[in-house]
Nucleic acid binder design. Structure first.
Lengths: 215, 215, 215, 215
DNA sequence: CATGAATGAGTGTTCATTCAT
DNA sequence: GATGAATGAACACTCATTCAT
């Protein structure tokens, strides 16, 4: 490898290997930045700490991101993108099964530290970066709520579910998941929620409310 | 000369009057600080802005609070205290009526800007100020949840409500209120929730789940 | 009410003494900045050095000037203002006497370190701050050249001077003064011009050219 | 594409070819650097911009110049060398003709952007690089002034010119050219001097002063 | 030879905190 | 008490210089 003559080395240099390395480094920076921003918030995060965590020099960050603000936005947008990618395809089965599936997915999100980080950052910085919350709303929240709406509609169509006002506010169905995220953000490891039991109770509660009563 | 005048004036004043004035000024500072911290977060808030908003000089803040951190904690603790004070006494009546009353109170909280601010601040700064979230948990959240628990217990006792796992997790019952707060924090005026309809749907949903089915 | 009272006291405090001190300090900063900018140029001047020279802390500069650029412009504008103020009123006497007077004044400028500094700064930074050279042109150069024009015109009117093309370009008359400034800027103490002899030669040269030849 | 070709060529070519190419590249860098230093001054010039302008990579500069300072000095010394080379051979004819010739040459310098750049740089950086002004003085200014002296001496010898003090200060004769350079440096395109008319007036003015009056 | 990614010292600017008035 | 001028530590960002490829 090392003994390649200089011309070959040069030719090989710029294109594929370098690009790959650059992309990798960018990801490292984003990961380090997420950690710092997620913990300390935008203003309290020092880029030097991000650099240290990424194992690089302060100046290197600026080769990848124009300034602190762009880095922050890139962090959030990257996370949102991952959420979008995770909104996996449609399913079949009874409405109840679909709902179980949906909530189960939601609790995977709740358990996911990065997903919680994004919520913290969006709440903490929505004064300074409202556009980010907008993106999140458009790309993640609305699509998510729409999936709930579709499942409810299907349940009503198949006769599994009653018609309820809650269908207009699918937020009500998923709210316990949101609360679980907030709970974790507020209390960290200090006051744990037993998520397994909690999510089961949540599902039962929702189904109790939705199911058609046996006459 | 001028200084003499003011000293004479001061000398003439009585002690209780002074105390009162001091208290009043402290409240003004706290109010201004709440506004700023609530909007920008701890790190991004400049004490100069707080002073300007309170109509005083920067240095004056330090006559009332040792440093920025104490001011912040005072802001949050004051808010928490107000929440505690608002946890008004118990009532009588059917469990359903009590539950209606409880949720109705909660939505007053949701509509209250300061109450939302506190949530934002606690979430945003829980990395730096976890003790505050602890206080909030002990003094506000747990007492609140306990009230829900008591209502549920009474409902079961009177036969109005079914026995459900959700009783172990009263969070599930109130979660839509939390979601509403988060929604407002994230989206401000940009994506409104119709709180009237939402809270009604919430109540109906909960009652549908709790109520004993007519056999 | 009470607040008004206390504010009146405040208002009295800040006024005369403080204002005076503030003005004085501003002048000190400008003087220190002139020294540094004049020696090193805009980009190579560090505000810390300006502060040190003024005997204050770095941050203090920012209480008087928004940023480095404003400080620099203030320095130059202040200097220009002093030049304008120095363009003293007109005199009477023969055209030759007026011309002697004029050139004598000009050589006072040449001997003035601050006046040389301004030329260096305007030349050095005219790429970044062309407006400053414009101000200088409008407020100093053109008025100065106009005085030369008026003297020449009077000389022609009284028959002392010949009519010459140079009247259209009064720059030619004063050019040796400009050269002397540039010479000093370039060579500092290293290659001295004997300004007394030089200015005499300059005057003689000019008069030789302007005077009507005795027939 | 060009780069690739040239590299292949280089590899194949013999040593003198290489040397030539290297020299050429060095000239490109010097030209680019002149442009940047001349516009922005030493401190405000970024080597990256020099590289970009020269169409090479930042690091390449360091293959030709040890550091920024050496590059700057090389730029100035190269320019000075060109000035020296331009001090063309001697002439014959009447002193007046020689003087016309001399001033005409000087105004070619005035019109030459690089020659103006050198003056700007020497003035702007004479604090940091006084040696450069020294070189310029020794190699360009003094030789130039000596030529003026010789012409004046010859004119006096032939009886064309009067004996004047100005002979001791040939600067006075050429000063309008210097002023024209400074004028252009300060005012760029914003306040033009009509150089044709100006230089004619200059010559006339000088001759009026020098010529022996017809008795 | 040439590249451009990486470095880190250096500088402009901000802001919590102090203190003379 | 109240003020606001002053301080200086802290931090974002730049750029000359190095070096692996």
């Amino acid at each position: 490898m090392k003994t390649l003559n200089s011309r070959q080395v040069k030719a090989a240099k710029s294109s594929p290997r370098r690009r790959e390395l650059k992309l990798h480094r960018q990801k490292e920076i984003l990961a380090a930045a997420l950690e710092e921003f997620g913990t300390n918030g935008y203003a309290a995060t020092r880029l030097e700490d991000v650099a240290k965590r990424a194992g690089i020099a302060k100046g290197t960050i600026y080769l990848y991101f124009r300034d602190k603000e762009r880095l922050f936005r890139a962090v959030v947008r990257t996370l949102i993108q991952k959420r979008i990618d995770a909104l996996t395809g449609m399913f079949s089965g009874s409405a109840e099964k679909l709902l179980r599936e949906l909530l189960s997915q939601m609790y995977q999100v709740v358990r996911n530290a990065k997903a919680r980080s994004i919520v913290r950052m969006l709440i903490a910085e929505s004064g300074k970066f409202p556009q980010l919350a907008d993106i999140y709303h458009r790309e993640v929240i609305e699509p998510g709520l729409n999936r709930v709406r579709r499942v409810l509609k299907r349940g009503v169509a198949t006769g599994e579910f009653r018609q309820t006002k809650a269908a207009q506010f699918p937020q009500i169905l998923v709210a316990p998941g949101v609360l679980a995220i907030v709970w974790r953000l507020l209390h960290g490891e200090r006051h744990r929620l037993d998520l397994d039991a909690y999510s089961k109770a949540h599902l039962e509660f929702v189904l109790d409310s939705l199911r058609k009563q046996p006459d």
